[in-house]
Design a protein around this nucleic acid. Structure first.
Length: 137
DNA sequence: GCCAACGTTGGC
DNA sequence: GCCAACGTTGGC
């Protein structure tokens, strides 16, 4: 299984909304590197749900329920989206500040490429963050 | 709230 | 196919 991180503005699409609706489509990605990561996702892969903006923290874990397919919101047809469902909410959200302060995350894409919205997470980083968040890995 | 950095688009 | 210009994102 592979691990990922998905960024979203909570005002636009939040963990609460995903939980309320039970599933959601991850559309609107317009960045090639992010899109490449979307295409690499496999059914059953897990992803951290990250709130950007003022929050800047990991708030939960979701699962990929449908692999990449054409993004309905993209008129050019170049970009793809995936579907996700909520798995578990973080007991303790893990903040970006906390991650940055920890040397073991120095090579984490979230730190190195601040603007990327869809990125892979290594198994080691996944495990550490799950522990901090009070999530079962 | 400004500015720098990055990524994408369009012109040549 | 390169490079300048533009738009967007995130840091301070």
């Amino acid at each position: 299984m592979n691990y990922w991180l998905l960024k979203t503005e909570p005002e636009e699409y939040s963990w609460d909304k995903l939980e309320r609706e039970g599933r959601g489509g991850w559309d609107g990605v317009r960045n090639f590197m992010a899109a490449r990561n979307l295409r690499a996702m496999k059914l059953g892969d897990r992803a951290f749900f990250y709130h950007t903006g003022d929050e800047k923290r990991i708030v939960g874990v979701c699962e990929i329920t449908r692999e990449a397919y054409p993004d309905k919101s993209d008129p050019t047809g170049k970009f793809v989206m995936v579907d996700v469902k909520p798995v578990r909410k973080a007991k303790t959200p893990v903040t970006l500040a906390e991650i940055k302060a920890d040397k073991q995350f120095a090579d984490f894409v979230l730190v190195r490429q601040a603007r990327l919205s869809v990125m892979p997470v290594s198994a080691a980083h996944w495990k550490t963050i799950c522990q901090r968040a009070g999530l079962d890995a």
